[in-house]
Every structure is written in C-alpha cells, then in structure tokens.
C-alpha cells in the first residue's frame, strides 16, 4: 500500500466526538499516523506479518493503519468506552480486523498474576503526554516494554526527551528519535487559550531486542 493510499484510508477514521480532557484525548491526525506507520513498515519492517498492540488506542487510527499495512494480528486497548465504540466503527468502515479491549492500561498490566506476557512483536502508541496526569506517559511506556518483544514506537513531548531516553536506557532499551513532529492540537478544551496550539513532539523508536530473549516460559507453543 502506498503512503497516499494509507493516508486516504485513515482520513475516513472518525476522531473523538467528545474528547475527555483528563484522558488527554488528542487525535493522531491521518497525516501524522500514516507517516509514522509508513516509516515503521518501510524503514524498520515492524508491521508486516507482526503481532501489534496499540496502548491508549482512542479511535483506533494507529491500530487500524497497522493492520492495513499487513499486521497479522492487532489489538487496541483503551479505557474510554466512547472512544472504543468509535474505534470499532472505524475498524468496520476501513475493513480492518482489529480487536479492542477496554481496560485501564497501567493498572490492568501491572505484572500481577504473571501477566503481561510478551505477546506482541510491536507496540505502536500515542499515549497521553502526562500533562494532566503526571507520569502517565512513563506508565504507558513501561507497560509497552513489558508487552513487546521487538520494538515500541511512541510519541512524547520533545521537552521530556532527556528524561525518557535516560529511563529507557535504564530499562535496557536502545532508543532513537525517528522524527521531530509538530502536533497541531486544535482548541478542543476550555483550558486552551489560543485557537490552536503547536506542541513539539518526538516520534521515538525503542529497540527491545537486546533486553532479554523471550523464553518458553513467556508462553506460546
């Protein structure tokens, strides 16, 4: 699938109808989502034939796009029932095959009961930036590292880059900045004074292949 074709598909994905401020529900635009996914596929070959998860999937644009680019199984997780209902509808509209699960990501995947397993090859996500709820961005990242075997792709505020690079390396992951993006966040919330707000965002890739080789005890036959 060509980039323009992917972007065309993702333009049909309906974003949040009633964004919730506490969940930092900023949509990933079709423009940014298609370029992220295209880079993940073309440069790193981390989508085609892979098992892919999307943490905080919202209306599902990254999960659906990953599936359209050939992932063999994709699951999107989110806490918000309205966003998931929209994601489900978008999934059908795009003729994608993504499963969705409603859960509170940090508390559901807290490592109790021997879960999570390293179920996914690749995690792709646009987590909350941690502006409203401090530290939630790192909680998402931690879960992503626990769920993925291969690599994690995530968007974070550029202002938090040093902190994230340091933390990721202490967790044993190699991290690179794939691209610097400008997120044009429309004035969706009351606390936004300006009409739109540009936020500098890093598109990061974390390579987990050196962290630890998954053993049989991680499940699977």
């Amino acid at each position: 699938m060509k980039l323009k074709e992917l972007e065309g598909f993702l333009q049909t994905v309906t974003p949040f109808q009633n964004p919730k401020v506490m969940l930092e529900q900023y949509p990933t635009s079709p423009h940014i989502a298609s370029r992220m996914l295209y880079a993940i596929d073309a440069t790193f070959d981390d989508l085609d034939g892979k098992i892919v998860g999307d943490l905080g999937c919202g209306c599902g644009v990254l999960a659906i796009g990953a599936n359209l680019l050939g992932s063999c199984y994709t699951v999107g997780f989110d806490v918000d029932t309205d966003a998931l209902a929209q994601a489900h509808e978008n999934n059908t509209d795009c003729e994608a095959e993504v499963d969705f699960v409603r859960c509170d990501i940090p508390s559901y995947f807290d490592g109790e009961n021997g879960f999570p397993r390293k179920f996914f090859d690749t995690i792709v996500m646009n987590p909350p930036f941690g502006t409203r709820k401090k530290g939630v961005d790192m909680e998402f990242l931690k879960v992503a590292f626990q769920l993925a075997r291969g690599s994690v792709y995530s968007l974070h505020k550029t202002s938090t880059r040093n902190h994230i690079l340091k933390t990721a390396s202490s967790w044993g992951a190699k991290c690179e900045v794939v691209a610097e993006l400008r997120f044009d966040i429309p004035n969706m919330y009351k606390h936004h004074k300006k009409r739109t707000q540009d936020v500098q965002v890093d598109f990061l890739r974390f390579d987990l292949s050196q962290v630890s080789s998954p053993s049989e005890s991680d499940g699977g036959v």
Binding site: K20, L23, V79, D80, T81, L84, A85, H88, D99, F100, V101, R102, C103, D104, Y108
Partner: peptide, 13 residues
Amino acid sequence: DGIPNMLINEEEV
C-alpha cells in the same frame, strides 16, 4: 459489541 470490558471500577473514568 465484541469489546470485553476489563475495568473493575466503572467510576475510574
């Protein structure tokens, strides 16, 4: 509608 709800407390959101 095909979506499992694994939330323990609905009031979490």
